[in-house]
Lab assay of single mutants.
Amino acid sequence: GPREVTMKKGDILTLLNSTNKDWWKVEVNDRQGFVPAAYVKKLDSGTGKELVLALYDYQ
Rank of each mutant, 00 (worst) to 15 (best):
G1Y: 13
G1E: 11
G1T: 13
G1M: 12
G1W: 14
G1I: 13
G1A: 12
P2I: 13
P2Y: 14
P2V: 12
P2F: 14
P2C: 15
P2D: 11
R3T: 13
R3M: 14
R3Q: 14
R3V: 13
R3I: 12
R3F: 15
E4I: 15
E4K: 14
E4P: 15
E4L: 15
E4N: 14
E4D: 12
E4H: 15
E4Q: 14
V5N: 03
V5T: 05
V5A: 04
V5C: 07
V5F: 15
V5W: 15
V5S: 03
V5D: 01
V5R: 02
V5M: 15
T6K: 10
T6F: 15
T6E: 09
T6V: 14
T6L: 11
T6C: 14
T6S: 14
T6Y: 14
M7K: 00
M7F: 15
M7T: 01
M7P: 00
M7Q: 01
K8L: 07
K8Y: 08
K8V: 07
K8Q: 07
K8T: 07
K8H: 08
K8S: 07
K8E: 04
K8F: 08
K8W: 07
K9P: 05
K9S: 06
K9Q: 07
K9W: 03
K9V: 08
K9R: 12
K9E: 05
G10S: 02
G10Q: 02
G10W: 04
G10V: 01
G10A: 03
G10K: 01
D11C: 06
D11M: 13
D11W: 07
D11A: 06
D11F: 04
D11H: 04
I12A: 02
I12G: 00
I12T: 06
I12M: 05
L13C: 07
L13A: 06
L13K: 00
T14C: 08
T14V: 15
T14N: 07
T14M: 08
T14I: 14
T14L: 13
T14H: 09
L15V: 06
L15Y: 02
L15D: 00
L15H: 00
L15S: 02
L15W: 02
L15R: 00
L16D: 00
L16N: 02
L16I: 13
L16R: 03
N17D: 15
N17L: 08
N17C: 14
N17E: 14
N17V: 07
N17T: 06
N17I: 07
N17S: 13
N17P: 03
N17A: 09
N17Q: 09
S18F: 06
S18V: 05
S18K: 08
S18D: 13
S18E: 10
S18Y: 07
S18T: 09
T19R: 11
T19W: 09
T19S: 14
T19C: 11
T19M: 09
T19G: 08
T19F: 09
T19A: 10
N20A: 06
N20K: 05
N20I: 05
N20R: 09
N20Q: 07
N20W: 06
K21A: 12
K21Y: 06
K21L: 08
K21N: 10
K21P: 14
K21M: 08
K21H: 09
K21R: 12
K21G: 07
K21W: 06
K21C: 07
D22N: 14
D22T: 14
D22L: 14
D22Y: 15
D22S: 11
D22C: 15
D22G: 08
D22I: 14
W23C: 09
W23N: 01
W23V: 03
W23L: 04
W24H: 02
W24K: 00
W24A: 02
W24L: 04
W24Y: 07
W24E: 00
K25G: 05
K25D: 03
K25M: 15
K25T: 06
V26A: 01
V26Y: 00
V26Q: 00
V26E: 00
E27T: 06
E27A: 10
E27P: 00
E27L: 11
V28R: 09
V28H: 13
V28Q: 11
V28W: 10
V28E: 05
V28I: 15
V28K: 14
N29E: 10
N29L: 07
D30Q: 09
D30E: 11
D30G: 15
D30C: 11
D30S: 11
D30M: 09
D30T: 07
D30K: 09
R31W: 14
R31M: 15
R31V: 15
R31L: 12
Q32F: 09
Q32P: 08
Q32E: 11
Q32W: 15
Q32I: 15
G33F: 15
G33P: 02
G33K: 04
G33I: 15
G33L: 15
F34Y: 14
F34D: 03
F34I: 05
F34G: 01
F34S: 03
F34M: 07
V35Y: 02
V35Q: 01
V35A: 02
V35K: 00
V35G: 01
V35P: 00
P36D: 02
P36H: 04
P36A: 04
P36C: 07
P36K: 04
A37I: 04
A37Y: 03
A37V: 05
A37H: 03
A37C: 05
A37S: 13
A38P: 06
A38T: 10
A38E: 09
A38I: 10
A38M: 10
Y39S: 08
Y39Q: 03
Y39M: 10
Y39G: 04
Y39D: 02
Y39W: 07
Y39V: 05
V40G: 00
V40T: 03
V40N: 00
V40F: 07
V40K: 00
V40M: 06
K41A: 10
K41T: 10
K41P: 02
K41Q: 13
K41W: 07
K41E: 10
K42I: 12
K42W: 07
K42Q: 07
K42S: 06
K42E: 05
K42V: 10
K42H: 06
K42L: 12
L43P: 00
L43E: 03
L43K: 02
L43V: 10
L43M: 08
L43R: 01
L43A: 03
L43F: 10
D44C: 15
D44R: 11
D44P: 14
D44A: 12
D44Y: 13
D44M: 11
D44I: 12
D44V: 12
S45K: 09
S45R: 09
S45A: 10
S45I: 11
S45E: 09
S45Y: 11
S45N: 12
S45T: 14
S45Q: 09
G46E: 12
G46M: 11
G46D: 14
G46T: 13
G46W: 10
G46S: 13
G46A: 12
T47C: 13
T47P: 13
T47Y: 11
T47L: 11
T47I: 12
T47S: 13
G48F: 08
G48T: 09
G48W: 06
G48I: 07
G48C: 06
G48K: 08
G48H: 08
K49L: 11
K49W: 08
K49P: 14
K49T: 10
E50Y: 10
E50A: 13
E50W: 11
E50T: 14
L51S: 07
L51R: 08
L51C: 08
L51N: 05
V52N: 00
V52W: 05
V52M: 03
V52E: 00
V52Y: 07
V52Q: 00
V52I: 05
V52C: 09
L53S: 04
L53T: 06
L53A: 05
L53C: 07
L53G: 02
L53W: 05
L53E: 11
L53I: 15
L53K: 06
L53N: 02
L53F: 06
A54R: 01
A54T: 03
A54D: 00
A54S: 04
A54E: 00
A54L: 06
L55G: 00
L55K: 04
L55M: 08
L55C: 05
L55H: 01
Y56K: 13
Y56T: 09
Y56E: 10
Y56V: 12
D57A: 06
D57H: 05
D57R: 04
D57K: 04
D57T: 06
Y58I: 03
Y58K: 01
Y58C: 01
Y58S: 01
Y58M: 03
Y58V: 02
Y58L: 04
Y58P: 01
Q59E: 13
Q59N: 14
Q59F: 11
Q59G: 12
Q59R: 11
Q59T: 15
